[in-house]
Design a binder for these strands. Structure first.
Lengths: 197, 197
DNA sequence: GTCTATACTGAGATAGAC
DNA sequence: GTCTATCTCAGTATAGAC
């Protein structure tokens, strides 16, 4: 049984990313991934719940960083601004990760099954942000809405950042925040349309 | 092979919802669903791409209604207000659908695989709304952001509406819109942080 | 309508770290 | 001794090819 330097988990992730990229997600079997990583198929499933999960291993890291950043944000900021501040804080991590996230983005946009999993990860991240805002005293409903809105902004920025090579992520983030501002300012949302609960 | 009044597609949907609810999504096979509906397993897969899709058959109907509502919204409304206006317009449809959406909500919250599919459906709906806003002259970036924000608001309202039996959907929708208003008003988002592209 | 590849699961065994 | 990581074997059900 081959046992090179990197742990099996990491070898599996690398093998999966390579094979999926070379041949397409559907044209790769979990057995092949395991073989290339030098382990059995069963070992693949001990590390990852399914064939998709192997691509989303570093998400936990970013989530922890974001959670910490929310806790460290200035107390003067509102809920929405807090999450956006946290996101801007961790852009360096994302910039470092770009070599990985770029091929990953190609895969997820090309494969509906992977897009689904990515959306689930984002939703889970929104829950984490909601809880983190809750710890700052924000009430549940606003926390949830702020987390989702902020993630929509961040997601839009990240999307443009991946597709256009030239500018840094922070540029698109600032741009998306401006977009949100203009939306909220110009939009005449109905107010006091119900008697308060 | 039994051939009662309702078409096979509808019988399959009903059988799936019942069986999933009785025993849990994972404990039901597609063969069982087909058997209860009086068709072969092959027929199941002719109507639905996979085991999850059978639960999301009426989504297309709502999407079309929403798309039409966006087109009919007053031209004075901003992008965000347009989608929210459209959503408020179709609440009667959702109220009628409540007997179905309630057990469906139980299932999707209990089953990660179904939650994933639901998120994918919502994302697809956001794309449709983005395109509909685009047809009204809204630029792509703002349209996408407005669609996603509006769907977050609508999703939050729908969630609370399902969990609390007492009040109509429109109440929670108005409440969520108020929440968004307070978020955008109190939050001091950074402005003009970048030179315009 | 039939056949089949393969994603995924379960129970149990082995081997090394501590 | 326990714990964790890995392998072996055998099976089921989904989903797609023919």
């Amino acid at each position: 049984m081959p046992r090179d330097g990197r742990p099996a988990r990491l070898r599996l992730q690398q093998a999966a990313l390579d094979l999926y990229t070379e041949r397409g997600f559907d044209q790769v079997t979990t057995a092949e991934i395991a073989a290339r990583a030098g382990v059995t198929e069963r070992t693949f499933y001990r590390h990852f719940a399914d064939k998709r999960e192997v691509l989303f291993g570093q998400e936990d890291f970013l989530r922890d960083a974001l959670e910490r950043a929310v806790a460290e944000a200035p107390g003067t900021l509102g809920p929405l601004a807090t999450v956006l501040w946290a996101f801007r804080r961790i852009t360096p991590l994302l910039e470092d990760n770009r070599p990985l996230s770029e091929p990953l983005h190609q895969l997820t946009t090309a494969t509906p099954a992977l897009r689904e999993r990515e959306l689930a990860k984002t939703a889970s991240l929104a829950c984490t942000m909601t809880a983190a805002l809750g710890r700052r005293g924000v009430d549940d409903r606003c926390a949830s809405l702020a987390a989702q809105t902020a993630l929509a902004v961040a997601g839009q920025a990240t999307h443009l950042w991946i597709e256009q090579t030239a500018r840094p992520l922070d540029h698109f983030l600032a741009q998306a925040i401006d977009d949100l501002n203009s939306l909220c300012e110009t939009d005449d949302l109905p107010k006091d349309t119900h008697t308060s609960a």
